[in-house]
């Protein structure tokens, strides 16, 4: 089973300049940040769906479908407990079920899902090397950029390791589902410690291997791949500026809010 998200499809999105892709990620986050209303979140969501279709990133969304579902569902439910505004529609103990709490909860769920979707699209279409290069171009120091991009590569390895550790403990009769929510979290100690120790060991091995391959030799490493700026990059950049500006306007005009009580 592939543990990385990058899908090599060679579409025009894949071929965009790394800096444009990093900027696109930023604009997606920016746009989602400014609005709360599900309807206002729809256009950026549609853009993401369009990109997903264009780049054939659906396998990654399918892999993470449960995460998306849980994110939207739990956030909606949680805000119906904590967002206590608007006229109650149905009396349910603990919950405050109103039009506003529903809209706000669903909006928050969609917001988180869109943040995740933007990241998935970025990682589906951007190689680690491009990520590093993109960060370097926006003046992030090489070491910092490399560390950030490498962490994306390591996360799936740690997840893989955690799955093995959960299996190992289950085979010693351990039940992770015993007890209430807090007890269940506590019961993950026999997983967290081996994952943490393994991560330290792997990080140490990787650091040695990196330096042994010359990492740190030069403050300005060269790049093997040439990333020329093309008209598609300029078009995409202009489109992203427009999208970012549109969302700021939605916030500024109040159209991105959830209603009069915002």
């Amino acid at each position: 089973m592939p543990i990385y998200l990058y899908i090599d499809r060679g579409t025009f999105v894949h071929r965009l300049h790394p800096t444009v892709k990093v900027f696109a990620l930023f604009v997606m986050f920016w746009s989602v940040y400014w609005v709360d209303n599900p309807i206002a979140l729809a256009p950026v969501g549609l853009v993401m769906l369009w990109i997903a279709q264009l780049t054939d990133s659906w396998p990654n969304f399918y892999r993470l479908r449960w995460l998306f579902a849980i994110l939207v569902f739990t956030t909606t439910i949680a805000w119906m407990v904590f967002y206590r505004r608007g006229a109650v529609l149905v009396n349910v103990p603990i919950f405050h079920v109103s039009r506003l709490s529903l809209v706000f909860g669903v909006g928050r769920g969609i917001k988180l899902a869109e943040l995740l979707a933007a990241s998935v699209l970025f990682l589906s279409t951007t190689k680690i090397e491009e990520f590093t290069y993109g960060l370097q171009r926006i003046r992030v120091p090489y070491r910092v950029g490399f560390a950030i991009s490498l962490s994306f590569r390591l996360v799936p390895l740690f997840i893989d390791s955690a799955v093995t550790i959960v299996d190992a403990q289950r085979l010693r009769g351990y039940d992770f589902n015993e007890g209430g929510p807090i007890e269940r979290v506590r019961r993950y100690v026999p997983v967290v410690i081996p994952v943490f120790m393994g991560a330290l060991r792997k990080a140490n091995n990787m650091a040695m291997a990196l330096e042994a391959r010359g990492f740190g030799f030069s403050h300005e490493p060269t790049t093997f791949i040439d990333y020329p700026v093309t008209p598609a990059d300029i078009t995409a950049f202009a489109f992203l500026i427009g999208l970012g500006a549109l969302y700021f306007m939605l916030y500024w005009t109040g159209l991105g809010g959830i209603g009069p009580l915002k």
């Binding site: 990385y4 990058y6 190689k127 680690i128 090397e129 490498l150 590569r153 390895l157 792997k202 091995n205 990787m206 291997a209 990196l210 042994a212 391959r213 010359g214 990492f215 740190g216 030799f217 030069s218 300005e220 490493p221 060269t222 790049t223 093997f224 791949i225």
Partner: peptide, 21 residues
């Protein structure tokens, strides 16, 4: 697993050369 950092083979070979400029 700990000494491969890149997303394709050619880039992996280039990694050390990039580092030395």
């Amino acid at each position: 697993e700990s000494q491969l950092f890149s997303t394709n083979v050619a880039h992996e070979v280039a990694f050390a050369m990039e580092q030395v400029g």
